[in-house]
Design a protein around this nucleic acid. Structure first.
Lengths: 234, 234
DNA sequence: GTTGATTGGGCTAGTCTCAGACCATTGATC
DNA sequence: GATCAATGGTCTGAGACTAGCCCAATCAAC
């Protein structure tokens, strides 16, 4: 009966706040960047300017955005993920609840490995291969500040490269459900090196056209971060 | 920039019609069954009774429901999938467009194989194994009339058994996007027998705890129906 | 046949959301 | 310093949506 669930997650204002927050936290617009003009953004989000402005005001008051008037003005992103802190992590988890957390982790594992598998099974053009490799190189060359944003970009590019909009938005959704948690995990050198190896394995499996290896590599990688999460929770 | 997409797919009325249609077409309420009482259903869908009633009236006028007043009354499902017809298929495809079709098929492949993989990797309780086997047996014992409903039930039970609500609803969504198409494919004995073997292979791989085999079995099965679709389109 | 519980049918007052128009501010360009 | 295009800020009237209430029909139980 899971299909007779609520039609809407909340009112237009709440859903808009959520969506903008997703764009900010996933790094779709990096710190210092600005959102599209209100008129254009309202049209893209399919809502009225009034509702959009309420959402922007809320985010501005919460410290995520800085709004400036006049030509060359706009809503500039000021958000920066907090310093990783296991205390934050515990708090975030108790806020969302263990059941929901496990739901989100399972969801992410399923859709991301599904996406990798599909991409590995497809015949890739040279351009697609190039995009994947570029994202991987960007990530490997990232400093600690950009790491999370480029990590997200790498993961999401896999779903995007399948050409399925539905799959891409689903992966973005899955990622954003755990982004606060991931941000609270300290970035230790051992973990980063381990992740780098896994990212490379994922890309290689996809480029080699090996769906089994791709899904296995993604599963290992995500289960690694899930284990890391659990470790910091105890 | 896929994240700055429309916040809502339509107004409350349209989304409600869509959701009810999904429940009907996926066989969540079979023909002759009835929807929950309006007050309860409105609460579950998170909308007002007024809006729900408008949606029900639309579906009733379109021939999907029969509404009866009084105690033991309610909204009864009268819908029955049309007889399979390649002509319908062509029409349905031109209505949705090739790009959207390919998007939906890719999406379904990714999420369903992801779900099977996750379930195969989990430690299943006796009850979970029993549910899966029961759904498989139901499907194998089905007549032509119940076949599609029970096929849907089998596929969706895989996602449901993972315990992830998000994954279950996503798979239901993916399935409903192609249900009209699937319904238009004639059910030939050779295909049904082939499908039965593949369903068995999927269940066995999951029960054996072999994620690679599970994802491969689902991928083969879904690519089979996708190929069937393409065949009837040419 | 009367009763009573259950269910759909309908009304109203109030809130949310929208489209569109107009105002105010900014800063690059001239 | 004046201009002007781009952008946020504000208002209004109309329509969508809701919560809550009461009415009408049906039918099993008595």
């Amino acid at each position: 009966m899971t299909v007779l669930r609520p039609v809407r997650a909340g009112n237009a204002f709440e859903e808009t706040v959520e969506r903008l927050l997703q764009a900010i936290k996933l790094g779709v617009v990096a710190k210092g960047g600005k959102l599209p003009p209100e008129r254009e953004l309202a049209a893209r989000l399919g809502i009225s300017r009034v509702t959009l402005r309420e959402a922007i005001r809320a985010l501005s008051e919460a410290g995520y955005l800085d709004v400036r008037r006049g030509r060359y003005g706009g809503a500039f992103v000021t958000y920066e993920p907090a310093e990783p802190d296991p205390g934050d992590l515990r708090q975030a988890v108790t806020e969302m609840g263990m059941a929901e957390l496990s739901d989100a982790l399972t969801f992410r594992l399923a859709v991301e490995s599904g996406a990798a598998q599909v991409l590995a099974a497809a015949e890739l053009t040279g351009e697609q291969r190039a995009v994947l490799l570029r994202r991987l190189a960007d990530l490997n060359g990232a400093g600690l500040e950009d790491y999370r944003r480029l990590d997200t970009a790498f993961h999401l590019s896999i779903a995007e490269l399948t050409g399925s909009t539905l799959l891409a938005t689903t992966c973005a959704d899955a990622r954003s459900r755990v982004s606060d948690l991931l941000n609270a995990i300290p970035m230790l050198h051992v973990n980063l090196e381990h992740s780098a190896l896994q990212h490379r394995a994922i890309a290689e499996a996809i480029l080699a056209g090996d769906p089994d290896a791709a899904r296995r590599a993604v599963a290992e990688h995500l289960e690694g971060t899930a284990a890391l999460l659990r470790a910091f929770l105890t």
